[in-house]
Amino acid sequence: MGSYGKAVMTGFICRLCSEQKKIVIHLYSSKAKEMGLMEKIRLLPITVEKYDNLPKTICEACISRLEMQFNLVVKIRKTDAIQRSHTLLHSNGRCPVECPLHRTAGPSTGK
């Protein structure tokens, strides 16, 4: 019989980093739902399905990294939308007051 320390406990393996952890969150738990973990995982280049044979838990370190990545994606999408509307609102090279970048645009906008 092998040692307990080398045993693989599938309920404690992180789906993202594959490391064995003492504290994990099950991806289909109410806490994971509350945290929006599945929504955030969908931004990754992986597929997580409820009935696949892969781990359904995620460790605290990966949750933290996932949160940072999700926040970055949200910021990038918001910035992209602002910049696109900024471009659409201009006429004659002037930055109108209703433009979301009106106060932040530099002197090259014709203010």
Rank of each mutant, 00 (worst) to 15 (best):
V74T: 06
S18V: 09
L54I: 12
G11C: 08
D52Y: 13
Y51D: 14
K6V: 02
R77G: 03
K78E: 08
S108T: 11
H26G: 10
A81G: 07
V73T: 08
Y4P: 01
P55K: 15
S91E: 01
T109F: 10
Q83L: 14
A81Y: 06
M1R: 08
V8D: 03
K21Y: 12
P55W: 12
K78S: 08
Q20L: 12
L43N: 09
I58M: 04
T79V: 10
I41T: 00
I25C: 13
Q20W: 07
D80H: 06
G106S: 14
A7V: 00
K50I: 12
K31G: 12
A61K: 13
A32H: 08
G93T: 02
S91W: 00
A105C: 13
E60D: 15
G36M: 02
K6P: 00
I58R: 05
L43T: 08
N92W: 01
G93R: 06
A61C: 14
S108R: 11
S108M: 09
A81S: 09
N53P: 09
S64T: 07
T79A: 12
K56Y: 14
S29F: 12
S30N: 15
T104N: 11
S85I: 03
C14R: 10
S30F: 12
K56M: 11
E49F: 11
T47P: 01
K78D: 09
I46E: 06
K75M: 00
E49C: 12
L101E: 11
C17W: 02
I23F: 15
I63Q: 06
G11L: 11
K21N: 15
K50G: 09
C62H: 05
Q83S: 12
K22C: 11
P107M: 11
V8E: 03
E34V: 01
G106H: 13
E39A: 02
E19M: 12
A81I: 05
R77D: 04
